[in-house]
């Protein structure tokens, strides 16, 4: 995974609430067996509307997306994170995120930043003026050229994974012994739990 420390650039002022993963990437794009190329299907229905913010040349090359409450709700499809990444986005700022989406985002080097609604409203204004937004994960701040400065909190483990571009599976496999001990104990105590399909 590509590490993420600081992102500076234009932001797409989407602003909508309850942007579900069917909006981010509709089902017909889920037939792929690869992670690549999903940007083409990102926000498909929204982009069919003339003058939509995603394709607005004013926000070309943006790497930040600003949205409303409950971003990424709905399906667990990680295709949503892959599609945003394929559009070149590295940060999504919103007042709240669905739990599954924010986990998926972090695993793909995309930072979900939670800020209160008034801060998000201010950033939407700045973005609409075409001004850049700077997101710094080290200092956990979002700043603008107008001296706005908002701090955000993030789960320390997720922050560490993003900053270091860490492979979570590698981290867990390093604890294989502890997992093995756990399994041995439960195989002895509750063997039926470990049978699964082999019952």
């Amino acid at each position: 995974m590509q590490p993420l420390t600081r992102v500076e650039g234009r932001a797409i002022p989407l602003g909508l609430k309850n942007v579900d993963t069917d909006i981010i990437i509709p089902a017909k794009w889920l037939k792929t067996i690869s992670r690549e190329g999903l940007g083409a299907g990102a926000f498909e229905a929204l982009r069919a509307e003339p003058g939509n913010v995603i394709d607005d040349p004013a926000y070309a090359g943006a790497n930040v997306l600003i949205a409303g409450d409950n971003f990424g709700c709905g399906s667990s499809r990680e295709h949503a994170a892959w599609a945003l990444g394929d559009l070149g986005l590295r940060v999504v700022i919103a007042p709240s995120f669905s739990d599954i989406f924010s986990g998926n985002a972090v695993k793909n080097g995309i930072l979900p930043v939670v800020l209160p609604q008034d801060a998000v409203d201010r950033l939407l204004e700045v973005a609409r003026e075409g001004q850049p937004i700077t997101v710094d994960l080290e200092s956990q701040t979002v700043t603008t050229p107008y001296q706005d400065r908002f701090t955000f909190t993030i789960d320390p483990f997720r922050r560490e994974c993003l900053l270091g571009g860490l492979d979570e599976i590698g981290l867990t496999l390093a604890r294989a012994e502890a997992i093995g001990t756990f399994e041995t104990a439960r195989t002895a105590a509750q063997p039926w739990l470990m049978r699964g399909t082999g019952a």
Partner: peptide, 18 residues
């Protein structure tokens, strides 16, 4: 609960989740 594809891979490889 539902998980993303990276977590599917995590469970397959480790039988756990973080």
């Amino acid at each position: 609960f539902g998980i993303g594809t990276s977590e599917v891979e995590h469970v397959l490889a480790t039988q756990t989740l973080l």
